[in-house]
Design a protein around this nucleic acid. Structure first.
Lengths: 150, 150
DNA sequence: TATTGTTATACTCTATAACTATA
DNA sequence: TATAGTTATAGAGTATAACAATA
């Protein structure tokens, strides 16, 4: 198909260049995140848990909602991270049924290290743009995401 | 920590706004892709397999390399997709050890449907930008990614 | 009765190691 | 001997359903 006739375009399904660029960018970014996590024996989901708990103490259900996962899935994720000493569980003071989750000191340290690691790992990519274009890209992305968040 | 004193910024670790924007954008995009896949009972990885095979017939090892996975992982992925009738295996004509993988008609149809589905699912996000800014964003992303690919 | 979380179960995804067949 | 692929095995991530404890 590499030598397809001129009547058939080389990439017949490229309906929307921006969508393709976003998807490709997402895969590149995710690959960097995944690698950064793997270097610390963390899955993407475990990294997200650490990121969420960096400045919060939340209940199991809230954590599951944040991540779009089932409560039962959270039990396993938190079990494994707790066993590794990255986070802790404690009963809620307000609701006897609820359990609150928060980072341990080790978990907090790892979360900081990971954040710095990811920034460094992405810098070869971001720094291919000159600073002005970096700011333009950031502004466009933020505008696009902000409209979708609110 | 929500009511932290003014001496401590609300987001103490925001070293690089572009990195944060890229990561957030990647998660939003991946969520859309994952949802589009789940609607068709496909994992992200299975979707990537379909995307790769859309215009190619490749060997197991090449597929594993494309995805950054082990050969043995590919065996399982291809087994399940083949069992669902989405793709097929055939021995290589040139190398008796090699196996080539390619989309079945059903797989090709699904790949097209998925591609359109993803475009539609992302359009609420992309269309928050006016067309000129969409083109600017696309150009910036492509420039950034191209420098990293080549 | 409804909600919070866990347990039991099952399936997919992933890797490592050992194996078969071909080169 | 090296390479292509599969099998066996193990562990993580995920969901559904059933359950216990609390509200």
């Amino acid at each position: 198909m590499v030598t397809s006739p001129p009547s058939e375009p080389a990439e017949p399904h490229r309906h929307n260049g921006l969508v393709d660029a976003l998807v490709q960018c997402a895969f590149v970014t995710m690959a960097v995140l995944t690698k950064a996590g793997a270097d610390n024996d963390l899955s993407l989901t475990q990294m997200r848990v650490l990121a969420i708990l960096r400045d919060r103490r939340v209940r199991m259900t809230a954590l599951a909602d944040h991540l779009g996962l089932e409560k039962s899935t959270m039990t396993g994720l938190v079990d494994r991270a707790e066993k590794r000493g990255l986070l802790q569980r404690a009963p809620s003071a307000e609701d006897g049924r609820a359990v609150e989750v928060f980072l341990s000191p080790d978990g907090a340290t790892l979360a900081e290290r990971l954040y710095a690691h990811v920034g460094q790992a992405l810098s070869p990519t971001t720094s291919t743009l000159v600073p002005i274009d970096q700011r333009r890209l950031q502004a466009l992305l933020e505008r696009m995401l902000e409209a979708n968040t609110s």
